[in-house]
Design a protein around this nucleic acid. Structure first.
Lengths: 224, 224
DNA sequence: TATTTATGATAGTAATACTATTATTTAAAA
DNA sequence: TTTTAAATAATAGTATTACTATCATAAATA
């Protein structure tokens, strides 16, 4: 028997559920590949269709436009991360250890999870670093928010915020600190690899240094 | 006599220097307006030309494409901020006061600076919040970096990093903390206004709360 | 077996992101 | 002042993007 993790997705992100067909799964799989390879700006439904071996119209039957497809992919990742955090910290009782574990998960390029067939999480993590903020840095952010497109991200922030409060119930900014951890983990990773002088990690380009930096930042604030 | 602050720009960002003609100045002025109003994705040279009252080809004589124009505008802002920080902290000897002042400048919507004729800095600040990261979150980031497109941003980070070291010469991550302050100031502002549950500033939507959060974060880390 | 449903193949449109050409105006040099 | 150069305006044209629409066919389901 093959175990599969299913992330429940917001149905208004798609026209036809991509999990329910081979073509749908290929749309997700090749989108991740192409966005990673060429970047979101250069990514088009035509190129995607060619890569899959279908037609543009075929892709449009699943997703209205590439923005919704990006939001779908990113939401999926947040959902998967939420699951990972729950799973990997389920036996950790000490909140400080738990938060450290969470920071490590957020700042580390994960290995491909065999439980999610057509999705390569390590590539997805890279996409999140370079393209993640483009999901919400748009003029339609409020409409998208009303449609609950960012619910998985918010839930993750809420989970992390909860763990922060477990560490120190008097800390005043659990949500802001949670979103800061997530975003800074990605930003410092991007800077380290592309604009290294904006970081102090230039030499080794090692993700562990980002984790150390974040741990220092976070625990100084909440243990003060 | 009218005093004018001139920010020296990287000449490879443009084909013809926009500071040197009325049309050029209008390109900058209306770009800022249009990008702010409709967002960078919906911004085109055709719409810009119409707004100015010139033709598309006219705009292309100044800028190769809209990406370079965005980088130009954003670089200008970093250069202007660097000047502001130098100017507004020149008599502050206490490094902690200086860093607090810098955090306030970075996290506050500035008033329109009358010394820079055709540029409205308060709108530029808004553009930086929503569009700033799109300047570097591209596949060409390394080439752009080689051309020194991000020099003003790096210099600003370096300046802020220097002030951090003045506060505590043993602090290990001055550059990362500097880039974190700048980016988090913008991100938390965007979240506060658009995705408030990712922050703890939902009620009043006041920038002062972001400053308080950043001060807490920064000084906990460096004074530890 | 009939019929719904998904896919494939093809066409077409408006907008975007440019490049090129020529005419006209403006400003600087002779 | 005239000549010449440089900047701009007006127009046209191309390839690509971001879609929508139509119709035929294959596969799944009733």
């Amino acid at each position: 028997m093959k175990l599969e993790v299913q992330i429940k997705m917001n149905a208004s992100l798609y026209l036809r559920d991509p999990e329910q067909s081979e073509l749908g799964k290929n749309i997700i799989k090749f989108s991740i590949e192409l966005i990673h390879k060429h970047g979101f700006e250069a990514f088009t439904f035509k190129k995607l269709a060619e890569a899959i071996g279908t037609t543009e119209a075929g892709v449009y039957r699943y997703f209205e436009n590439k923005h919704k497809l990006l939001v779908y992919i990113i939401s999926w990742y947040w959902g998967w991360l939420e699951f990972q955090i729950g799973y990997q910290t389920k036996n950790v009782t000490n909140p400080v250890s738990k938060l450290k574990k969470v920071i490590t998960i957020l700042a580390t390029t994960v290995e491909d999870d065999i439980m999610t067939g057509h999705v390569d999480e390590s590539i997805l993590h890279q996409i999140l670093i370079s393209e993640g903020s483009k999901a919400y840095l748009t003029k339609q952010v409020s409409q998208d928010n009303k449609q609950e497109y960012f619910k998985p991200y918010k839930e993750l922030c809420n989970t992390v915020g909860g763990i922060i409060l477990e560490c120190n119930s008097k800390y005043k900014y659990p949500h802001s600190l949670a979103s800061t951890i997530i975003e800074v983990a990605h930003l410092q990773n991007f800077f380290m690899n592309n604009l290294p002088s904006l970081t102090d990690f230039s030499k080794s380009k090692n993700e562990d240094q980002i984790i150390t930096f974040l741990n220092d930042l976070v625990f100084s604030s909440i243990e003060k």
